[in-house]
Nucleic acid binder design. Structure first.
Length: 155
DNA sequence: GCCAACGTTGGC
DNA sequence: GCCAACGTTGGC
């Protein structure tokens, strides 16, 4: 069992959107970075824990807990010329981009980015590293325990 | 809107 | 393969 942090812009897909979706599950469309794709392809397993992070918004931070709900499969938006995620270099025979389904488990209180940075226990978090832009990053078991078991209380 | 940091592209 | 130019991310 591994743990992940996945960024989403709440205007597009917030924790509330996920909780309101059928089976509380959203296809995680739009990943267009090879390292993030490879995490989904090579390392994610169904049932892995996910910290649902809101980015590019007024208050960025962790907004909920989720889980990986499917194996990876081609992201259909890459084939859609009308989609902002369209990739003309991708074909159905050889798709470049993959996604997994993510099932929301619970909304937490919003745990803001500055609060995450303030905890020495989280100093090594991949997403807190300087200049990090990856939309999917790894979370250690200790970091998961600290965030889910401590910071997320009082939701 | 600014800008630091990083990834990708493409000419050579 | 190098690397400059360009595009994107994302916090502030």
């Amino acid at each position: 069992m591994r743990y992940w942090l996945m960024k989403s812009e709440p205007d597009e897909a917030s924790i509330d959107h996920a909780l309101a979706a059928p089976d509380r599950t959203l296809p995680w469309t739009g990943v267009r970075n090879y390292q993030a794709r490879n995490f989904m392809r090579d390392d994610m397993r169904i049932g892995d824990g996910v910290l649902f992070y809101h980015s590019s918004c007024a208050e960025p931070g962790i907004a909920g807990i989720a889980e990986v709900a499917s194996g990876c499969y081609p992201d259909p938006t890459q084939f859609d010329p009308a989609s902002p995620y369209h990739d003309p270099k991708s074909t159905r025979e050889q798709p470049r981009w993959l996604l997994v389904d993510v099932r929301a488990l619970q909304k937490t209180r919003l745990i803001p980015l500055p609060e995450l940075r303030s905890h020495p226990a989280l100093a090594g978090m991949q997403m807190l590293r300087r200049g990090n832009r990856l939309s999917i990053t790894t979370v250690s078991a200790d970091e998961w325990e600290f965030i889910v078991g401590r910071l997320a209380q009082g939701a």
